[in-house]
Every structure is written in C-alpha cells, then in structure tokens.
Amino acid sequence: MYEAQIAEELSRWKRKLEKRPSMFDRYTKGLQMKMNKLVPEKVHAVVTSSIKNMVHATLVGSEYTTKKQPDLALSLEEREQKVMGLIKSYKRTAALEGAGTGAGGILLGMADFPLLLSIKMKFLFDTASAYGYDVRDYRERLFVLYLFQLAFSREEKRPELIEKLERWESEKEKLPDKEEYLAAFDWKAFQLDYRDYIDLPKMLQMIPGVGAVVGAAANYHFLDILGETAMNGYRIRWLSE
C-alpha cells in the first residue's frame, strides 16, 4: 500500500517538474539576469570556483568523514520517516545559518555560500544512508551529485537528469574508475545552474536590515527543494530495483 502511495506521489512530482515556469518565476529569472550583470565578473568567478572546489572536496573526502553505516533492514516507509525527520532538522539548521550570516552584511553573506553548500551535501549523505546506500562507494557519491544538480537545474535539463536517475543501475556500470569519475562530470553546467538558482536571494541576503530574514527564508526553501528532490530520486531507485 505504501509503495503504491509513493508511486503516485512520484508521478505527481514528475508532472510538476514538467510544468512551464509561472509568470512570477519568469519575471524573477529576468530580474536575476539583470542583477547578475551588475556584479563584477571577478565576483562571479570566485563564487563559481568556490562551488566547484568545495563540492569536489566534499565528495572526495566523504569516504573518510562519513561514519554512519547505511540502514539495510528497514521498510521503505520506515526509511522515509527517518528522511522526513532529516529534512525538518536540516531545514532548521540551514535557516539558522542563513539568519546568522544574513545579519552580518556582505562579508558574512559571502561566507554563507560554502556553509550552506556543506549543509546540503551533509543532508544528502545522511539521506543516502537512510535509504540504505553507502556514500563511501564513489558511485553513490555521484548519484548524490546528480540529485543535487536536479534540485537546482534549469527546466530544460530536468528530463535528461531524471532519465539518468531512472537508468542508474545500468548507468553506474558504465562509470569511469574511482580515480577518474569526477573528471568526467560536467562541472561547468553544474556550477552555472546552481549559481544562477541561488544568486538572487543570496544577493538580497546581503542587504542590511533585511538580510537575516531573507537568509533564513531562502535557506529553508533551498533545503525544502533539496529534500523533495532527494526523496523522489531515491524513490525512483527503490521502485526500479
């Protein structure tokens, strides 16, 4: 019964991703592009480089920093109860971090990028473990990376990423060796999508007086999106397996 329920929820989630962006979303995207042009290219370069370097370091180091053994004997419903608890906890953590850095203006606002990124990646590692997957396996770390990319991707890229998740059991057999798998990833697309997705709220977060409120709300929202994407990504694997 539970698997039938989540299969329906998964279908609704896929349909939601296929919808055309709303007028508000299109307006926000246009405003974001205008604001991006006002930011010096050197600032964009620093942010882009920091995103790549931090994600790369987190993925490579996760086999040493992840101590939890994946849960192997739980039902899907029990796993998802744990994941929903993780989402609630990490949203609260992200909101507190956003409020703290947002209250500090531009300097602390810049520090929010790597801090929030580390919170997101840690959440994904814990979620993988709750679903029974061991992120010390480099193939699971790559799956996590695709989940992250899907959560913050542009509309036209989502079908391709969802298809990759649906075919993961065959896809992972084609992966390069452990020493080379990160080099084969499309880092440029990953960085640009993520940066563009979070640029507008993060720039608003640096405005004195409202930064704390914006930072808390934005980070809470980002973790909400990531949580929904992660749950449905692992549901795809569970049902296919």
Rank of each mutant, 00 (worst) to 15 (best):
K172H: 08
A99R: 03
R92M: 13
D112L: 07
T229D: 04
A189M: 14
S22M: 02
V47Y: 06
Q5A: 07
G102T: 05
G98N: 00
E160W: 10
N53M: 13
K67H: 09
K188E: 14
E156D: 02
L72F: 13
I207R: 15
K157S: 11
L165G: 01
Y220R: 10
L10N: 03
A217Q: 11
L116I: 10
A94L: 04
Q149M: 15
D71M: 09
G98Q: 03
D126K: 15
K120E: 14
G61D: 08
T127S: 07
L72H: 13
L165Y: 13
R15D: 09
R26T: 07
A130W: 00
S153Y: 10
T93F: 04
L59A: 02
M84F: 14
T93K: 15
K157D: 12
K29Q: 09
K122A: 08
W238F: 14
A217D: 15
G109E: 03
N232H: 12
I162V: 15
L124T: 03
Y133E: 12
I236E: 06
E41P: 00
I119L: 02
W187P: 03
L72K: 13
R195D: 11
L86G: 05
W168P: 00
E97G: 12
E173D: 04
Q149R: 14
N232E: 07
I119S: 06
G209R: 04
F190K: 07
I87Q: 04
I236H: 05
P70Y: 00
M23D: 06
M23V: 12
P40I: 00
Y197Q: 12
T58I: 11
T48R: 15
G233Q: 03
T28S: 08
D71R: 07
L147N: 11
M84Q: 12
Y133C: 03
D126W: 11
S50V: 05
F123K: 01
K178V: 05
L200D: 03
F152K: 01
A184L: 08
G102E: 04
R167G: 11
I162L: 12
L124P: 00
E8N: 02
A151K: 03
L165C: 06
M23R: 04
V60R: 15
P70R: 04
Y64L: 15
R141D: 09
A45E: 01
D25S: 10
